[in-house]
């Protein structure tokens, strides 16, 4: 038609190719830039001390001495990994149990005040996690829990995110399933354990994975309530390394590489699931 804009015509065939090329360059350029710090960590961990004085992409000599040094002569590292694993695992289990129980109660059982309880829990989203640390520290102190695993675990289980996610999910499970089960003589607990939970495996695993990674990586709160070498988690322990090995980038980086390995492995195994568990928060927000 004569109305057509003629200027567009000249680029007709080249545009898609240029766009695709630009996409590849941008996407992979960013990807490689993003991996440089991790690459640095690894390269430094295998660089001999006499080469540390200057920067290089590839060290001339390669040594795995620091890897064996950390793995065989630094037992504290294992202690930290154990502490972190324990705290993250217990936190995850408690979050799944506590949150699913109350979400079930809020969506499936009628009791006076549940709307109010839900409202309070949801509005606690507004309370930023870190501004509570001083009074929370007092509470932990007065409960005599200082420097214990519980001091880290229990406050982590109080967050509203899981309750909210599970509440939304349980709410959408058809009422008929539960009614059918009741007519079959199921008790409330069996409905929860044998109907609702099995149907919620996808969301429970997403919530569990996210909680695990999140609690594994927490820094500020364990820093406040844990105060001995043997109780430290990886994030706290790693900081103490700086003062000891700050001069020896190779030793420090080896330690960092080793303590980050467990979570990298978790990430490699569950990459898609973990990303979708983060996305879940965006869709409920």
């Amino acid at each position: 038609m004569s109305l057509r804009n003629p200027t567009e015509h000249d680029f007709e065939f080249d545009v898609p190719a240029i766009e695709t090329l630009a996409t590849y360059v941008t996407a992979y350029g960013l990807g490689i830039l993003f991996l440089i710090p991790l690459y640095q960590m690894f390269v430094l961990s295998i660089t001999p001390t006499d080469e540390l004085g200057s920067f290089s992409w590839f060290p001339e000599d390669v040594t795995f001495a620091y890897w064996s040094w950390v793995l065989f002569e630094q037992p504290l590292i294992y202690r930290w990994i154990f502490n972190t694993l324990l705290i993250a695992t217990v936190t995850t289990l408690l979050v799944l149990v506590f949150d699913s129980l109350i979400a079930f109660s809020l969506t499936r059982l009628e009791w006076p005040g549940r709307k109010l309880v839900l409202g309070i829990i949801v509005s606690s989203f507004m309370v930023p996690a870190f501004v509570n640390i001083i009074p929370l520290f007092q509470v932990i102190n007065q409960l005599g829990m200082m420097n214990s695993y519980w001091a880290v675990i229990l406050p982590f289980t109080a967050g509203p995110l899981g309750v909210f996610l599970l509440y939304q999910f349980f709410r959408d499970i058809p009422e008929e399933l539960e009614e059918a089960a009741r007519m079959d003589g199921f008790s409330t607990f069996r409905i929860y354990a044998q109907i609702i939970l099995p149907l919620s495996v996808p969301i429970l695993s997403a919530l569990g994975l996210f909680t695990f990674v999140w609690s594994w990586n927490q820094f500020l709160w364990p820093l406040i309530v844990l105060n001995s070498d043997a109780m430290y988690t990886i994030p706290i322990g790693a900081v103490t390394l700086q003062s000891v090995y700050g001069e020896f980038a190779n030793r420090l980086m080896t330690m960092l590489a080793i303590v980050s390995l467990p979570l990298f492995i978790v990430f490699l195994l569950f990459q898609e699931k973990l990303i979708s568990s983060v996305q879940l928060q965006g869709t409920t927000g």
Binding site: F34, L38, P235, I236, A238, L256, V259, S260, L263
Partner: peptide
């Protein structure tokens, strides 16, 4: 893009 996000702040 995502792997830094699962690394702890001290590391």
């Amino acid at each position: 893009y995502f792997v830094p996000y699962v690394t702890t702040v001290s590391i």
